[in-house]
């Protein structure tokens, strides 16, 4: 019996669920936080969405059908919660998606937990200029280390389409960033 299957059994059994949930929280708290933070922008927003994500995970454990891996399932919930948050924010403030992107940069620079230097700000600006579909794939692939197959499952898109978006995003960043040595250093290209 594999470790993952064993772990899922614990998560879905009433007797062991709570103990297994604590382990799940330890495993995924940080990586989901960063995944969410890159979508919603500020630390404060990311904190709210992270809490909602784990509450939803906990309530949905019984319904986990193993149609996707546990890893993908966790990211899928975090992604959906982040998008739900952005949509609610958009409704509350009556803003378009472009305004949300502008607000993201504005929030980021005002966020006390953004500690970026000029190069990091520049990179953030360029990433925020990417079309939504390219940006999502780029962030998930490069920063979250997700595989194309997993991203396809989360975003419900074909792998081939995602690859096209990813390489278009890399090309866009390559053409727009002025400090090419920085890209070389972080090996985006």
């Amino acid at each position: 019996m594999t470790i993952e299957i064993d772990f899922i059994k614990q998560l879905t059994s009433k007797k062991n669920r709570d103990k297994a949930f604590v382990k799940l929280l330890d495993l995924y708290q940080e990586r989901l936080y960063w995944h969410i933070r890159k979508i919603v922008g500020t630390h404060e927003n990311a904190d709210d969405v992270l809490q909602n994500t784990f509450i939803r995970v906990y309530r949905s454990l019984e319904k986990f059908k193993q149609q996707s891996s546990l890893h993908t399932w966790m990211y899928k919930i975090a992604y959906n919660e982040s998008i739900r948050f952005l949509e609610n924010q958009k409704k509350r403030t009556h803003t378009s998606i472009n305004d949300v992107n502008d607000k993201y940069l504005e929030n980021l620079q005002e966020d006390v937990f953004f500690d970026g230097d000029e190069i990091q700000k520049k990179l953030q600006q360029i990433i925020s200029q990417l079309p939504d579909n390219q940006k999502r794939v780029f962030l998930m692939k490069y920063y979250d280390n997700l595989k194309f197959k997993e991203i396809a499952d989360i975003l419900k898109t074909k792998e081939s389409t995602l690859k096209t978006h990813y390489y278009a995003a890399v090309k866009f960043i390559e053409n727009n960033i002025s400090v090419s040595t920085y890209l070389e250093k972080i090996k985006v290209i």
């Binding site: 929280l25 933070r37 992270l50 809490q51 990091q120 920063y143 972080i186």
Partner: peptide, 25 residues
Amino acid sequence: HQKDLGLDIPENYFASSKKSILEKT
């Protein structure tokens, strides 16, 4: 994330966040 994107978090954030999540679940 800190190095590439300049994103930071409050000190002991994950410990306090874990506590808060467990309280709500």
